[in-house]
């Protein structure tokens, strides 16, 4: 660890050369909300939940008033940490922004938590709790999405996909199988499987693959394993997502 540091909400955070803001913050035990960032993968920068402001300034105008000039907004998972910079994360503006982003994800997909196997350990849900999201606010898309049960061990419920691409990255980078990819664009963007039929059962995914175990929400599910932990004892029943931030610290040297 080098002796360089920056400031996150006025707290000094040390960082190593090449670390991004979120990597340094999490290593130092400071939580910054995130969904597409994962400790084992290169940062991706798509969900934008980790957005922070960098180097806001306060100036005094000619008539003696102090005005805050907001710094630039950036995804902290892809922005390299720089010595001396001042980063804001826990501000009203950014909390509100993150709530809006969570609400966008909640209306884009079909999230019926009471019937979701991931409930209680779902990152989207856990983050929504932590941000105090009480409602989805925007009109629901009620988009019609598929369920793919063709694989012997794994079920895909696309209703809940937040397009974080973690499964795509895991399959390409760790499993070296490229089972998942994306197609479409804009509001038609969607996950596809690597087979001519488009079915998961026709790919070489194994239940032990990283890609089968990385989905932060309830899309990639293991058959015959649902609702195994009782209500009240699940991951985010016991502790909020923001607890113990070092659990999200990068686990190996990032490229």
């Amino acid at each position: 660890m080098s002796n360089e540091s920056f400031f996150l909400d006025e707290e000094e955070i040390p960082f190593a050369e090449g670390q991004t803001i979120i990597q340094a913050a999490l290593s130092a035990g400071k939580y910054i909300p995130h969904l597409c960032y994962h400790p084992e993968f290169k940062p991706h920068g798509s969900c934008k939940l980790c957005t922070v402001r960098i180097d806001s300034r306060t100036i005094t105008t000619e008539d003696g008033q102090t005005v805050k000039i907001p710094g630039r907004a950036a995804a902290s998972c892809t922005t390299p940490a720089q010595a001396g910079q001042h980063v804001e994360s826990e501000t009203d503006e950014l909390r509100d922004l993150r709530r809006t982003l969570v609400q966008m994800l909640l209306v884009e997909g079909n999230h019926y938590c009471p019937s979701c196997e991931k409930s209680g350990k779902c990152m989207l849900q856990g983050l929504a709790y932590d941000l105090g999201v009480m409602d989805p606010h925007f009109p629901q898309y009620f988009s019609k999405r598929e369920v793919d049960a063709s694989h012997a061990d794994i079920l895909l419920d696309f209703n809940r996909c937040i397009l974080c691409e973690l499964c795509v990255r895991a399959s390409a980078e760790m499993d070296k199988k490229n089972v998942f990819s994306l197609s479409g664009r804009g509001n038609t963007k969607h996950l596809i499987c690597n087979s001519e039929s488009g079915m998961l059962g026709d790919t070489n995914l194994a239940a032990t693959d990283k890609a089968a175990n990385v989905c932060p929400v309830g899309v990639i599910l293991h058959k015959r394993h649902g609702f195994e932990v009782p209500y009240g004892q699940r991951r985010f029943d016991k502790a909020p997502i923001s607890d113990n931030a070092v659990q999200y610290a990068p686990v190996k040297e990032q490229v």
Partner: peptide
């Protein structure tokens, strides 16, 4: 609005597909 169904349609809204 009290409860999941009031807030996002809940289980009854699963018929929307």
């Amino acid at each position: 609005a009290m409860g999941a169904c009031a807030i996002n349609g809940g289980l009854p809204a699963q018929r929307n597909s």
